Lab assay of single mutants.
Amino acid sequence: SSQSQGISSSSTSTMPNSSQSSHSSSGTLSSLETVSTQELYSIPEDQEPEDQEPEEPTPAPWARLWALQDGFANLECVNDNYWFGRDKSCEYCFDEPLLKRTDKYRTYSKKHFRIFREVGPKNSYIAYIEDHSGNGTFVNTELVGKGKRRPLNNNSEIALSLSRNKVFVFFDLTVDDQSVYPKALRDEYIMSKTLGSGACGEVKLAFERKTCKKVAIKIISKRKFAIGSAREADPALNVETEIEILKKLNHPCIIKIKNFFDAEDYYIVLELMEGGELFDKVVGNKRLKEATCKLYFYQMLLAVQYLHENGIIHRDLKPENVLLSSQEEDCLIKITDFGHSKILGETSLMRTLCGTPTYLAPEVLVSVGTAGYNRAVDCWSLGVILFICLSGYPPFSEHRTQVSLKDQITSGKYNFIPEVWAEVSEKALDLVKKLLVVDPKARFTTEEALRHPWLQDEDMKRKFQDLLSEENESTALPQVLAQPSTSRKRPREGEAEGAETTKRPAVCAAVL
C-alpha cells in the first residue's frame, strides 16, 4: 500500500463515540455579560531565545476518518491537505487489492476528492471536503458537486459515486458533537469551532446549510445566566432586550441578528466578523496607526449616533465590543453586545450600574441610586476607546495605585505619557480631550465629534464608502454560481449515467 503517514491498516477498528472529540476555545468574540476587562498594560515583551531549542513535538491529529468498508483504511489527519483517489500521487490511494476487485472500484476517479483545513476566524481551523469526481462525492447523502466544497462537521458520513455507498465517517477532533444542539438549529446550521467564551456562554462559528455562508452563533446558558443575574427581577429580559434591539436596528456599522432560537439555552445567530475584536488588534499591534484609528472611530461614531437617534444607549462600549470585518488594516467595524443597552424612556434617566469599570463615565460612578444619566455615557466610553487606539494603553487603570480607579475617572485625570502622545496629531488629542470631559453637559456629542476637524478627511470617508460598496456587492452575490457537472467518465454501479447527480441539489457548496 502507498498510504501516507497516519493511515492504519485495519478497517475493522472499533469506532469511538463522539464524546472523545476535544474542545477548543479562544478569547471572547462577544459576550452578553460584562466580565473583568482584559488588561492592556500587560503586553508581554519578546522573550530571549533559549540556548537549546526544544524538540519539535509530534503533531496531534486534528481529524480521524473511520473506514466503513473492507479495502479502505482508517486515517489520522495530521497534515493540512489529503487527496483521495486511484492515482498513485494521492496521499490516500485507493490501491488495496481487496478494493480493486470490487465492482465499485471502476466508478472512483483518479482524484476523487480531497479533505483539507484552512485558517478561519480567531486563527481556528475549518475542515472542508472538495469534490473532484465525475460520479460524485456525497456528505450525509447530499451531493457536494464537482469543483465545489463544503465544510465537514463531526460525524459526517462520506459516500463515493452513490449516496448509499458510504466509505468513511469523519471525526473532527477539535469540535463538539452536533447532537448536543437543538434540532431546529441543526436543521438550518452546521455548528463548528468555538470563537470565544464568557461567564454565561460562548460564541460558535457555524455555516448556513442552504448557502454555506459563515455566521456566529452566540449561545447563552439559561442556567448560568439565571445564577449570574439572580438580582434582576427577570434575567430573561436581558436576552430578550438584546434580541428586540438587534432586530430593529439596520446600520452597516451595527451587528445584524439573523436568527434566534429559544431552547434549553438561547441561541442568537449573528453575522460573522472575520477580523475578531478591536481589543485583540490593539494588543497585537501595541497601538494602531492614526489613519486606521480615524477610519475605525468614524464608523463607531456613525453607529452610536444611529443608536442615540433611535433612543438607544449602549452602556457597555469597549474594544471587546467592536468587531472587525476582516484581518486587513482597512476594514469595516461593527458594534455588538447589546445586553446592557437601554431604550430611552421619557425621563432619559437610568440608575442601574452596569458596564465595565474602566470605560464607565464619571456620572455613572457618582450617581448610583441618587440620580440618572443619559446618552453622554456612550460618548465618554468612545473617548476611552479612542485614547486606547491612539496610545496603546488605557487612560484609567486600577494599577495606578496612588489613585483609585473611581477617583481617576470622576476627576477626569487620565494617565498622559508625553513621549507616547508625541507621535499623535494635535487634532486627534483634542478630540480625545473633548470626549473625556467629566461634566456630561459639556462633553462632545456624537454629532459634535463628527464635525471635529480631525474627522474632516475626505480620503478616509471615501475609503469607508468603498468598503461599504464591497460589502454590499459580496452579500448580494449568490453563493453557488454554477451547477454541478453531469458529465460521466465512468458508469455508476447499477444505474444510468447522471441518474442521481442531477436530482440532488449541491447543498452548502461554494464554487472555488
Rank of each mutant, 00 (worst) to 15 (best):
437 V>F: 07
293 C>M: 07
414 Y>C: 14
249 L>G: 06
253 C>D: 03
469 S>Y: 12
291 A>C: 15
328 E>W: 15
306 Y>E: 03
322 V>W: 04
342 K>V: 00
408 Q>E: 09
320 E>L: 03
446 T>K: 02
312 I>V: 10
281 K>E: 11
282 V>S: 02
413 K>Q: 14
500 E>W: 04
323 L>S: 02
308 H>K: 01
372 G>A: 08
379 C>D: 13
378 D>W: 04
250 N>T: 05
471 E>F: 08
256 K>R: 13
353 L>E: 04
469 S>I: 08
333 I>E: 02
500 E>F: 04
259 N>L: 15
272 L>T: 11
254 I>S: 02
314 H>F: 01
322 V>C: 07
499 A>S: 14
483 Q>A: 11
357 P>W: 06
247 K>H: 02
484 P>H: 08
443 R>C: 02
326 S>D: 15
459 D>N: 11
370 T>G: 06
247 K>S: 04
365 L>K: 01
381 S>D: 04
357 P>N: 10
246 L>C: 00
314 H>P: 03
470 E>H: 09
333 I>M: 13
363 E>G: 01
479 Q>L: 08
305 Q>T: 13
358 T>H: 03
447 E>N: 12
367 S>H: 15
436 L>I: 13
441 K>R: 11
255 I>W: 03
274 E>S: 13
355 G>F: 01
366 V>H: 04
339 G>E: 04
375 R>F: 11
334 K>M: 12
303 A>S: 09
292 T>Q: 12
309 E>P: 00
424 V>G: 07
257 I>W: 07
324 L>A: 09
250 N>C: 07
340 H>T: 01
346 E>P: 06
492 R>D: 06
362 P>S: 02
486 T>D: 08
315 R>S: 01
430 D>A: 07
433 K>A: 02
380 W>D: 00
323 L>G: 01
294 K>A: 14
416 F>L: 00
337 D>T: 03
454 W>M: 10
461 K>E: 07
501 T>I: 14
264 E>H: 08
331 C>A: 00
257 I>V: 10
372 G>P: 10
327 Q>R: 14
280 D>T: 05
404 S>L: 01
336 T>G: 05
431 L>I: 06
263 A>K: 15
336 T>R: 00
498 G>T: 07
283 V>E: 04
311 G>V: 09
324 L>F: 03
471 E>R: 07
258 K>S: 07
287 R>L: 14
278 L>F: 14
258 K>W: 05
407 D>N: 12
253 C>M: 14
296 Y>G: 01
344 L>R: 12
326 S>Q: 02
432 V>G: 14
309 E>N: 04
324 L>N: 04
508 C>K: 07
253 C>T: 05
488 R>C: 13
512 L>C: 01
438 V>D: 00
264 E>T: 11
502 T>R: 07
411 S>L: 04
408 Q>G: 11
433 K>M: 13
273 M>C: 07
433 K>L: 12
268 I>M: 13
329 E>T: 09
355 G>E: 05
268 I>N: 14
282 V>A: 08
311 G>R: 08
278 L>V: 11
323 L>R: 02
349 L>F: 09
400 R>F: 02
460 M>Y: 00
393 Y>G: 09
256 K>E: 10
277 E>R: 03
284 G>W: 14
343 I>M: 05
427 K>Y: 00
281 K>A: 08
295 L>C: 10
441 K>F: 15
307 L>W: 01
250 N>R: 08
350 M>R: 08
356 T>L: 02
343 I>Q: 00
288 L>R: 05
463 K>Q: 15
347 T>M: 14
291 A>T: 08
511 V>I: 04
357 P>F: 15
381 S>H: 07
344 L>H: 01
293 C>T: 05
336 T>V: 02
356 T>G: 01
490 R>W: 08
510 A>E: 05
264 E>A: 09
464 F>V: 08
434 K>P: 00
291 A>V: 11
500 E>Q: 11
500 E>P: 08
368 V>C: 07
298 Y>F: 09
503 K>C: 12
433 K>W: 14
406 K>E: 07
351 R>F: 07
381 S>T: 13
449 A>L: 00
475 T>A: 13
416 F>D: 14
318 K>Q: 07
